[in-house]
């Protein structure tokens, strides 16, 4: 793969295209993600960040890994903004993943409130990465509001159902000039690979690895799958770009005659 193939988020460069999610955290998972999946960005639920004992995730995150604090627990834009500011006070850096969830059953994101929060936080200098339901209009609004990426869900969070929203994610990949990071629902490496082949810029996963029988091995499998998908995308699969000269033009050749 091209050496200069970097993921750029808010002007920062990453060589890894795997982001570790935060729902089902434990120290073993973090070590596996960093060592075996090469992850350079780990999300962090602010609501867990200031906890003592095993719950304090910050203590387990190695230096050099970028923190992506999330606003889980927010039910509307206002709460998301407050949690994001709290993350900044806790020294979590400028990135923030907006999660606004107003549904305790499916945990589906509220795009409307997410756009409002993105607008406010981008103005305050946050590098905003919104978790969203893959809707083209909402994605455009998020871009206009100053998001540095868009994070559409592949399937309900924790469901391991794979690319249930595939067609709509493809539309975002094709239409939105921001890195599209597929978040939630990716249950196996093959699904991560497929999303990368489609042109996703990165994959975020958690449950799939956290609940695997062999966590380090699964982390390694995800790394390989994401790299394979990326290489396939760059090599031209899935998009008709620069395929080289066509030998003949049976249908339109007459125009040259």
């Amino acid at each position: 793969m091209a050496k200069d193939d970097k993921l750029i988020l808010g002007g920062r460069e990453f060589t890894s295209r795997f982001i570790l999610g935060s729902g089902k955290y434990n120290p073993e998972l973090i070590n596996a993600a960093v060592e075996h999946a090469g992850t350079q960005m780990i999300t962090l639920a602010v609501r867990r960040a200031n906890s003592k004992g095993d719950g304090n995730i910050i203590e387990h995150i190695p230096k050099g890994v970028t923190l992506l604090p999330n606003t889980s627990g927010a039910r509307n834009a206002e709460e998301a903004v407050r949690i994001a500011r709290l993350a900044r006070e806790l020294g979590c850096g400028d990135f923030v993943k907006i999660e606004v969830i107003h549904d305790s059953k499916y945990l589906l994101p509220d795009n409307y409130e997410t756009i409002k929060a993105t607008e406010i936080l981008a103005k305050e200098g946050f590098l905003v990465m919104p978790y969203m339901y893959p809707d083209l209009n909402a994605a455009r609004a998020l871009k206009d509001a100053g998001a540095v990426s868009v994070m559409p869900l592949a399937a309900p969070i924790g469901s391991n159902k794979g690319l249930a929203t595939k067609e709509f994610i493809q539309i975002l990949v094709d239409e939105i000039d921001l890195p599209i990071i597929v978040d939630a629902g990716i249950g196996r490496p093959s699904q991560a690979c497929e999303a990368m082949e489609m042109g996703a810029a990165a994959i975020m996963a958690n449950t799939a690895i956290a609940t695997a029988g062999d966590i380090p091995a699964m982390a390694g499998a995800f790394k390989a799958a994401i790299e394979a998908g990326r290489a396939a995308y760059l090599s031209g699969l899935g998009r008709v770009v620069q395929r080289g000269a066509v030998a003949s033009s049976p249908l339109t050749g007459f125009l040259e005659e």
Partner: peptide
Amino acid sequence: FARIREMGLQPVMNDYVLV
């Protein structure tokens, strides 16, 4: 706390933020 760990589970003291 120790027993939860022995069971292969993770004891969590807090997963909540007042907003």
